[in-house]
Amino acid sequence: MIINHPLLGPRDAAEFVYLGDASLIDRPDWQSDTAADDFYEYQYLRDNPAGETRELWFHEQGDRSWLVVTRNTLTHEITKVELARDVALAAGRDR
């Protein structure tokens, strides 16, 4: 596979390390009353869609960026690649 890195252009996916669903960015609030359930669902349950999915790849043999890749799990077509940092910031994550 080839991942079209937003900063570096196309790179062989072999340079990257896969983590999983991009929902792993949405780490729950540890102080919430439902934190135990929230963390359980966050850590263990997956949509696992047959079709378009957003997922995290780390450019380990490259610029060390975490990327959010939008990819189809039936065809492997990649339609979007973003810096995960930008996605996280856009989702309101801060510090």
């Binding site: 780390f58 380990e60 510090r95």
Partner: peptide
């Protein structure tokens, strides 16, 4: 060593990008 570095980059870029 490698896995910890990757994990910390994940924390830095994806969880707490404002740090």
């Amino acid at each position: 060593a490698v896995g910890v570095f990757r994990h910390m980059e994940f924390c830095r870029q994806c969880l707490w990008p404002g740090m």
